[in-house]
Design a protein around this nucleic acid. Sequence first.
DNA 1: CTACGGATTTTCT
DNA 2: GAAAATCCGTAGT
Length: 203
Amino acid sequence: MKKLRRKFYNRDTLIVAKELLGKYIIYKKDNCEYIVKIVETEAYMGIKDKACHSYNNKKTKRNEIMYGNCGILYVYLIYGMYYCANIVTREKDVPEAVLIRAAEPVKGLENMSTNRYGKDYNELNKKEITGLTNGPGKLCKALGIDKLNNGDDLCSYNIYLAEGEHEEFEICSSSRINIDYAEEYKDCPWRFYIKDNLYVSKK
DNA sequence: CTACGGATTTTCT
DNA sequence: GAAAATCCGTAGT
């Protein structure tokens, strides 16, 4: 599979969010190779976007990664219990990113099952199988992504994104999930997902 | 099928 | 001290 280069990420964040659909995340950890296909993303559009951590150019210890180079993972803890994985876009000092909301498991299913439920993949019922990676917190749990992955370079060997075979699918968009506080930005159609894919988190 | 509340803790004000 | 880019179980339709 063809690895995505740095300049893929240094483009308009909405374009990157859309083009990330269908791409593969390859992550090597604990002697296991995890592969998932991205099926749902959300764009966070930086200093003007009230839903974005960097709204109004706010810079904190948590979000400083967004102000750095693109093609880097931004991971943070949400609601005290789950992690969310984002990919930083644009050039340095333009703090935008794409949240990876959901993915389809491709390889490393046994390990994902253990990470999520503490049991074998072949013991999972149908709901547990789709529940492996159909949400931002679930995806991180399945892949074992946590705080330590904040700042990981996606143009490296252990973790990177790649293009698969050319594949036809229809892209849907909608408003983003759980950002009611974002006022006039809460209805922007900046969430993208692959139509009819089983692992999309909602609708 | 949808709707609600509780869990849990880091981060920022 | 409040909020948070979530998830899950339970209850109701």
